[in-house]
Amino acid sequence: MKVSFIKAILTTVLAAVPCFALAAWNMDFQAGSTVLANDIRDLHVIVMIICVVIFIGVFGFMFYAIFKHRKSVGHKASNFHENTTVEIIWTVIPFFILAGMAWPATETLLAMRDTSAPDMTIKATGYQWLWGYEYLDEDIQFYSTLTTPKGQIEGTEKKTENYLLEVDNPVVVPVGKKVRVLTTANDVLHAWYVPALAVKQDAVPGFIRDTWFKAEKTGVFRGQCAELCGKQHGFMPIVVKVVTQEEYDNWVVSQKKKVSNSELSVENIFVAGTD
């Protein structure tokens, strides 16, 4: 696609500016690990290019006027105040630009919302303030809470790499499988958001919603609750571990043992974080 070519140019230009090249100053989406995440990034590049072109057009005129049509260089004001042709042109042209944008956007959106034919289904339930997961096909359920020690949050200990993005029980899924995620909530609204998987779905108490992802590579992907849900809204991360099918099967076996050993209840979960 053309887009990747233009992206290459943009990257080169940005990399030429020293401070932009530093990894810590990440100025783009997190590296995507699903097809959708990459489609969204491409869409974003298309829209940004349109914006840059319009930017140059509009502000080219504006800055030209600012520098050349000023009184201090002796420019005399003209008196025109309408021009029907120009006005029609700049009303109509944006329609076409927008239609050009809407087309790929619609395609991606339809793909994004197509939750049919999943390989497996996981239900994520938002609680104040942790996530509960249930593997509908496997009869596995567990809670997933923040493990960052209080000392790191309060500043008495040094913060480690995955500060605020680490949990006791991550979601484990096999690579290359379409995973459908049902979301719901126990108390107030939450949202299940993992940037690298291009998934964000509100969790609404009393109702289920669905979304999906299909991770293209193994790895650990971290996200957070994205809908204000009370005082510890910032302290209920999501960690998704994408593993090979074999590792996943082993994990399922070990989880089933665990579940039979302990009755889980949200009441006796210790909520990490503050207070």
Partner: peptide, 8 residues
């Protein structure tokens, strides 16, 4: 192909 029926 798949429908979830959920009760709360």
């Amino acid at each position: 192909h798949t429908i979830t029926l959920s009760f709360t």
